[in-house]
Each structure stands twice: as C-alpha cells, then as structure tokens.
Simulated assay, not measured.
Amino acid sequence: MGEPRAQHLSSAASLVRIGLAVFVAVWLFGPDALRAAVPVWLPFLVALGLELQFFLTARRAPPGSTRPDRRPQEIDRELYGYPKEPEDEDDVAEDDEPDWEPAEPRRRAWPVPGLLAGVGVIAALAALAWFVESRSGWSGLDAEKRAAAAERFSVEAARIVGRPVEIRCDESGKRVGFVQHTDGVAEVGGRLAYLTPDRCHELYRLAFDGSTSSGTARAIAVLAHEAWHLRGVRDESTTECYALQTGVELGKRLGLSEERARRLMRRALTENAGPGTSFEYRVGPACSAGGELDLNPETDEFP
C-alpha cells in the first residue's frame, strides 16, 4: 500500500476512535435527552463497521512497488542549471550508467495491528460505558428503591385511572425503548403499563430526590399518558392532550410547585407541535383553553 494512502487510512481510523471516545463521554455525562434518544450500542456498532472497512481497504490495496524518479526534473534544470541528459543512449558511456535495478515489489502488509488496536479501543470504551451505566441511572438503584418507585408510580397512575393499576419499568427493553420508538406502552382499558428505565429514573429523581432535569416534563407526561390509556382512552392525540393537563397535578404530587408543574406542561405542549412529535401524538385545536378536550373549561389556565 502506498505511503500516502496508508497515512490517510491511519488518520481516518484515529479520528473515528477519537470521535467515539468523545461521544461516549458526552453520552455518559451529557444531557439526558441524548441518552434517551440514542442507544449507546449504536455508535459502537458504527465504529466497528468503520474499523472493518479500514482493514479491508488496506488489505485490498496493491503494494507500493513504484520507485520514484529521483533524477533532476525539467523545472530543476531551469532553476538550478542541471545539464540536460543525452537523448541518445549511445552517447552515454557504460561507466556513466547508474547501477540501478528495479526494486523488488514490497510484500503486502497485513493491517492486522491497526484492526486489533481499533477493536481494543472500542472494547475498552464499551466496558467503560457499561460500568458507568450499570452504576448510574435506573440500573444504579438497588432493588428495594426500584420497587418502591414502581409502587409510587402505580399509585399516582391509579389516581388518574380511578382504580388500581400497575406501572412497571421495562428493564429488559423488550416492550418499550429505542426499538419500539416509544417511552411507554399500556393496554387500553387494562391494568398494566410499562415505562422505559430512563423515564422511571427521571420520575424517581423528582419524587424521591427532589431533583429535576431536561427530561422531567417528558417523564411526567409519559406516566400520565399511559394512565389515560389504562383508563380507556385509545386515540393518541386525545390521550396526549389529557396527559398534559393532568400532568400539572401529577407533577405537584411528585414534588413540584404548581407554577413549575404548569410551566413544564406548557413547554411540553409547545414541543408537541415541533418536528420531533409523531403525527398520531400531535394535538389539535381542540386541545386548548375552552376547547373540546379541555378538562377544566371553567378556568382560563391551560394546561
């Protein structure tokens, strides 16, 4: 493989590894919205694919066997006055002919060390991400705290539904999460609903630690949303509208002031009209003060 090409691939591989390290750091210690939107295994999968591509590209490239012409070039003769070489080979004495033999083709180098280095970096960063994640977030809570939190969420959901229901945090990721593109799921009219661990952790931090983050409003809305499904409301847009309204009282019961809870739900209502909201979840004109879906039409405040 030619030296410039090898340097290019090496630089590209280094940039990929540095980029992966930066992403892992931001994912672990950055905004909660990033952790909720991007599963940590995705960038590792992309990085591994790029490492394999670099390896195969280097393996398929022909070995560099072309010897550069080190004789004075035309521009060198013009600038520095090198004598012109005779055009007729007979004019060159045998003694003056350079002893030059074609260089033997270089053996094709296996770029295995680079691949092993890349895989090693990916494995080390994956281990770091797993270690930190397993000791933080919802997974970092012991079983007793998780059980107490799930029971509290169930009680709050039951207040909205009007009968006993159960809220579980889907630690297996089989029912909700990135693959299902949802933060919660519930059987309409049933008694059981699931939330993602990230949303459960946001609710835990609010209810048990009294702390909030950028994901607090969304977590409250998700719990209220699934509660309305359990109550029997099927339409997603209607359910979301009801959830944003009851989210004010739910937020108050979990520890927020009325002003803060109302501000968070109003922000969630504004974000509902943004490009990140799926069509079926987008609320319409009926979800407004005095509108058809207003649960408290006697007041001017909404939600």
Results as ranks from 00 to 15, higher is better:
residue 173 G to R: 11
residue 166 E to C: 10
residue 200 C to H: 01
residue 182 T to L: 11
residue 187 E to T: 15
residue 232 G to I: 13
residue 214 S to F: 01
residue 193 A to E: 06
residue 242 Y to M: 08
residue 163 R to Y: 01
residue 250 L to V: 15
residue 177 G to Q: 15
residue 208 F to K: 02
residue 171 E to P: 10
residue 188 V to H: 08
residue 188 V to C: 09
residue 209 D to G: 00
residue 244 L to F: 12
residue 160 I to G: 01
residue 247 G to H: 01
residue 148 A to M: 05
residue 175 R to Y: 10
residue 219 A to C: 10
residue 220 I to V: 12
residue 216 T to G: 08
residue 149 A to E: 01
residue 210 G to L: 07
residue 208 F to V: 00
residue 156 E to T: 10
residue 206 L to A: 01
residue 241 C to S: 11
residue 171 E to I: 11
residue 224 A to R: 09
residue 165 V to W: 07
residue 157 A to K: 01
residue 241 C to H: 10
residue 237 S to K: 11
residue 202 E to Y: 11
residue 184 G to V: 09
residue 196 T to H: 12
residue 229 H to Q: 07
residue 230 L to T: 08
residue 239 T to L: 10
residue 168 R to E: 09
residue 237 S to T: 12
residue 211 S to Q: 05
residue 180 Q to G: 10
residue 236 E to P: 08
residue 251 G to Q: 04
residue 245 Q to R: 05
residue 177 G to K: 11
residue 183 D to T: 12
residue 207 A to M: 10
residue 252 K to Y: 06
residue 262 R to V: 00
residue 206 L to I: 03
residue 258 E to K: 14
residue 206 L to Y: 00
residue 214 S to H: 10
residue 198 D to H: 11
residue 231 R to N: 02
residue 195 L to I: 10
residue 252 K to R: 15
residue 178 F to M: 05
residue 207 A to R: 09
residue 154 S to V: 02
residue 252 K to P: 02
residue 188 V to D: 04
residue 244 L to R: 15
residue 246 T to C: 06
residue 185 V to I: 12
residue 147 A to W: 06
residue 176 V to Y: 13
residue 170 D to N: 08
residue 195 L to Y: 13
residue 243 A to P: 03
residue 162 G to M: 14
residue 149 A to Y: 02
residue 137 G to I: 03
residue 192 L to C: 03
residue 229 H to Y: 05
residue 263 R to H: 06
residue 143 A to V: 13
residue 178 F to K: 14
residue 258 E to A: 15
residue 230 L to D: 00
residue 164 P to G: 08
residue 215 G to V: 01
residue 220 I to F: 01
residue 177 G to W: 10
residue 242 Y to F: 14
residue 235 D to P: 09
residue 147 A to G: 14
residue 181 H to C: 12
residue 249 E to M: 07
residue 179 V to Q: 09
residue 176 V to F: 04
residue 213 S to F: 06
residue 227 A to D: 12
residue 145 K to R: 15
residue 167 I to T: 04
residue 192 L to E: 03
residue 230 L to V: 07
residue 182 T to F: 05
residue 203 L to M: 06
residue 206 L to G: 02
residue 225 H to F: 09
residue 202 E to K: 05
residue 206 L to H: 00
residue 231 R to S: 08
residue 189 G to A: 06
residue 196 T to M: 04
residue 216 T to Q: 01
residue 162 G to K: 05
residue 215 G to L: 01
